[in-house]
């Protein structure tokens, strides 16, 4: 229990440190948001007014303090969107989360993130399914046919999959399935639920290929280890069929590290979605952060950093805790 609490505290610290570094980097960037909002032709007085409204004329530590105070604070449970104090907040009861307003879109950052996050999660989840499905079946397939040409083909393809950059795969799929065969839309998100689904297919495969190839290698190695163990020999001696031995005995034991990876992957996928989303113009967090960067939209950049680093930290945390829960050895050493 003490260990879990320590682990949680460390997770909070990592997110805080990440956010602080991002704040400093953001501040050090040689760009003038007030000038950007006011426009190139605006008189200096107007620029100065915007600067003081945004608090950009205050010293760094005061801006940082304000940012942290606003990030998580308490306020009324219900408020108007026009409220000068809490207009840009997102809240759960009296607990408020405020990341300010985007310089470019002039909307609360929390609103924009809430709009984009589910789409990236959907994409990451679909990709995780793609990799688990392809990776596990290809890995088992190769392991049960070890040293045959089918095994070598699977290993070779997985090497190719691990090495192929996301955007190369994405462009290839676009070229083949969107331009040539016209089975799926080239990019975008679509209007209806059915269109969303059709638009999801190519990006999900693109994002999942690396993981699928990586899983194939891991599952193959694990399965080869399990298949040569004593209990599998016993199961075979009992007269169980090859399918039963492979799936019910060996695969079950080989799954442990795979489940661990599945958890880790979701966090990585949220981060890795940047390139995939840009290739397919998928309106999620990844393309949002790229645009925020290119527009030098400070509050939006900070929002993206907060969300992505939290996602990565949470998924590692979840894996650590799940490990402690699943493996009695880790659990016991933790409680002592």
């Amino acid at each position: 229990m003490k260990r879990v609490l320590r682990r949680l505290a460390w997770a909070v610290f990592v997110v805080w440190a990440t956010v602080t570094i991002a704040f400093l980097v953001n501040h050090a960037l040689p760009s003038d948001p007030a000038r950007m909002i006011a426009g190139q032709q605006a008189p200096p007085a107007a620029v100065a007014k915007i600067r003081s409204e945004l608090g950009l004329d205050r010293p760094l530590w005061s801006q940082y303090g304000r940012f942290l105070r606003r990030l998580v604070h308490f306020g009324p449970s219900s408020f108007e969107k026009t409220d000068p104090q809490h207009g840009s907040c997102a809240n759960a009861g009296p607990l408020h989360l405020d990341l300010g307003r985007s310089y470019q879109q002039r909307r609360p950052v929390t609103t924009i993130l809430a709009e984009r996050a589910p789409r990236t999660l959907l994409l990451a989840f679909a990709a995780a399914c793609v990799q688990a499905l392809i990776g596990v079946s290809a890995g088992v397939f190769a392991a049960t046919r070890r040293r045959t040409s089918a095994d070598r083909l699977a290993v070779g393809l997985s090497m190719l999959g691990v090495s192929a950059p996301t955007f190369v795969i994405g462009l290839f799929l676009q070229w083949l399935f969107a331009y040539r065969l016209r089975w799926f839309p080239i990019d975008g998100y679509g209007e209806t639920a059915l269109e969303h689904l059709a638009s999801l297919v190519l990006p999900a495969i693109t994002l999942g290929v690396f993981g699928a190839a990586y899983y194939t290698r891991i599952v193959r190695d694990e399965m080869i280890g399990e298949l040569s163990s004593d209990y599998v020999r016993t199961a075979r001696a009992k007269g169980l069929g090859p399918l039963q031995v492979t799936v019910r005995h060996a695969l079950r034991n080989a799954m442990m590290p795979i489940v661990t990876m599945f958890g880790l992957e979701i966090g990585t996928l949220v981060g890795g979605a940047v390139v995939t989303e840009s290739v397919f113009r998928w309106p999620g967090l990844g393309s949002l952060s790229v645009n925020a960067m290119l527009d030098r939209d400070g509050p939006l950049i900070m929002g993206c950093v907060v969300v992505t680093s939290t996602a990565v930290v949470l998924s590692t945390l979840a894996v650590d805790l799940a490990y402690a829960f699943l493996d009695p050895r880790v659990r016991r050493s933790g409680s002592s």
Binding site: V14, T18, L29, G271, M293, L294, R296, I301, V305
Partner: peptide, 19 residues
């Protein structure tokens, strides 16, 4: 190293590039 690995570096590299 722990903090670094959780840090979205692509964002920072891009921020530098944009700046």
């Amino acid at each position: 190293v722990d903090v670094g690995l959780a840090f979205p570096f692509l964002l920072i590299v891009m921020a530098l590039g944009a700046a």
